[in-house]
Structure formats: C-alpha cells, structure tokens
Amino acid sequence: MKLTLQVWRQERADAPGSLQTYVVDDISPDESFLEMLDVLNERLEEKGERPIAFDHDCREGICGACSMMVNGQAHGPRTRTTTCQLHMREFDDGDVILIEPWRATAFPVIQDLMVDRFAFDRIIQAGGYISVNTGSAPEANLMMVPKDDADLAFDGATCIGCGACVAQCPNTAAQLYTAAKIGHLNLYPQGQPERDERTVGMVEQMESELFGSCSNFRECEAVCPKGISIDWIARMNRDYLKAKLKGVNRR
C-alpha cells in the first residue's frame, strides 16, 4: 500500500507545530497502524530526520497508551479499537491519512503526537481508591457483592484511561473517564464509606484540570475503545448532586 500521511509535528511543548506530509509505500495491509508509523520512523532515521514521537506500550489494546486522532476520529475509524489494534487493511491504497494529537488544554502536547495525561492521574489521586487497613487478608466471603453489581462495576473498570473520550468530545469534557472511575468503586460495598468524598473529590479535581463540561453529545461513548456507556455519566451526576445536597465538600 502507498499512503500519504499528514502528521502533526511539534518539537517541544512550547514550540509552534504544524502538519507535515509524508509519503510511505510498501505498507502491508496486515501491519498495525503503529507498525506503519514504525516503518515511517525507520525511514526517517535513515535519512537523518527526527522520528515521529508517539505514545505506545502494550500494543495489544489494554494499556491505553496509544493516543492519536486518525482522520478526525480518536483511535481511528474502527469502533471499540485502540490505535495499536487498528490495522492498515481498514484503509485503501492511496489514502490520505490525517494524524493529530489529542487536543485539550488539560493534555498539553509534549512532542508531536505525545500528550501529557497526568491530569487523569490527579483525578485518581483525588479519590479513585478504596482505603483498607493492611494486615492479613480478610475472609473472602465475609462481604457479599451482588453479581449484577460486580458485572456492572467490571464494565466501568475496563476503562484504560486512554483519553479518547476527552479527545473526541466537542466540549473537551472528561466526564466518561471520571464517571467510569468513580462509578465502579461506588458500586462495591467496600467503596461505600468513601463514596461521597470520592465523588466530590474526583469531580472537582476534574473541573480544576480545565476539562470542559458535558452537553450529552455522546461522542465519547462512540470512540471509547472499551465501549463504556454514558449511563456512567448519569450515575456520576446522580452521586455528585446527592453528595453536594448533603453538603459534602472537597477535603
């Protein structure tokens, strides 16, 4: 396959960036999107040019590191698929492919296609955990978890924190991520003691990271590689409004 790539190139966080055009040929349809970029990078290095920086880690769709807008869609055209699991057979020979980094004030560009997603980690630090005393493990069946709750919590826990929801959102909102992270812990009996503090803490951290607000456009749900539903956002809104009406404030 022969492809024309338009890639965002930016030297440093504070340097201006621009779209650069690269023509790559001899691409196999069985290569993944990231392997195609690897091929391009090898050729760039041979020519003595700086390779394109992009985030990647597991390359099997479970870590959430890969992050790029492909033709205006987070993780590219295939639904429920991360960029690393996207294969070149999804494209046609001669296609022009536009590749941009996630664009959000909260996710500043580090270089080229790499963005700083520490804002997500700070949201987790604001309450995305369950505090337990260390010591010997408790008896496994001491605390019963209803099967439906456990299944639902697992749906929320599949979030890999890639940031596609933020990237696609016309408002740049981080609701889907935050809601999934809050929601799965709020479903467990172990999550109940810290439920209100967790919800308020994480939502307000999200707000202070300069993410946008939710207009219920449902774009996040459409690009989420794990198919996380916007029902989680309603659940978070419910938990948050309840906690605020109870007068819970951020610690």
Binding site: M69, N71, G72, P170, G212, S215, F217, E219, V223
Partner: peptide
C-alpha cells in the same frame, strides 16, 4: 468553560453520534 478547554483546535474532528439538534 468549554472554549477554554480546547484552545488549539483540530484540523478535523468528525462527528460520530452527534445529532443535528445537539449540534
């Protein structure tokens, strides 16, 4: 708030489930 959340915009961002009324 939303304007501030994305100051440098995409060259292209496709609408996926966005309906006319919402947009």
């Amino acid at each position: 708030l939303n304007r501030r959340a994305r100051t440098s915009d995409y060259e292209k961002r496709q609408g996926l489930q966005l309906d006319y009324a919402a947009r």
